[in-house]
Amino acid sequence: MDPRLDQRTGDPVTITHAPAPTNTARITAIDLAVSTVRDLNQALHATDDGTSWVVDTPAGQHNIAVGIDRDLDLVVNGHVGYYFAGMHQKGRVTVHGSAGVGLAENIMSGTVHVTGDASQAAAATGQGGLVVVDGNTGARCGISMKGVDIVVGGDIGHASAFMAQAGRLVVCGDAGEGLGDSIYEARIYVKGTVASLGADCIEKPLRPEHLAELAELLALAGRTDDPAEFRRYGSARTLYHFAAVNAAAY
């Protein structure tokens, strides 16, 4: 199946859906009311760099656009289910809607942007790239993050950034209970309130280099929040070496 053909008619595709991807005149439209997620993913795995895709009627289906390893643009109009853009590499992906559990889990590179909310474990274990959620996320946002950058426009749920190893988590709203529990070297910026910090997570000074990286991340996410209004959190590094006296914290 040539992905640049219309899935329903087999004709070369020239139609566009708003908002149009930017880097090519050629856009493939796939309607998941007609095509299967398997067809879409196979096509995305087989396509070339530089292609553009629009997906309609996702209807909350799972595993849409997982395993992309191409420098492509993809727009999804509607809500997506579990593991949307899982293990994403290189491309730029936008969802005009909300995402289910495990949005962009283990993302390596590229950008995944959700205009609505994301469920639990957004960007879990992400190793690189940028995940932007304009709305809120559920629990465990950025759990075990390993280098990904995450910008959330709204609030995040409990146990977010649990065992976060590396990368930056920016929250423009409030954070739930147990933020950054057992955190390693990731950096967390929160503009609103933090319900509670997890074990070994402490507030740290917001120095100029932090303001600079925060400004950069906010700009990448298309946000106008003032970096100076954020507070920074990170590891107290007291759990880095096992000690029985810390037993209550394990």
């Binding site: 799972h62 997982v66 289910g81 579990y82 899982g86 495990g102 649990f162």
Partner: peptide
């Protein structure tokens, strides 16, 4: 430093979600 490993997967718990996780790995491969 000591490296800790979690006892549960970070993005799923239980067989219903495992079914979706397995489907994800199949889609990626």
């Amino acid at each position: 430093i000591d490296q800790r490993s979690a006892c549960r997967h970070p993005d799923w718990t239980g067989p219903d979600d495992l079914a979706i996780k397995i489907a994800e790995l199949r889609e990626i491969t």
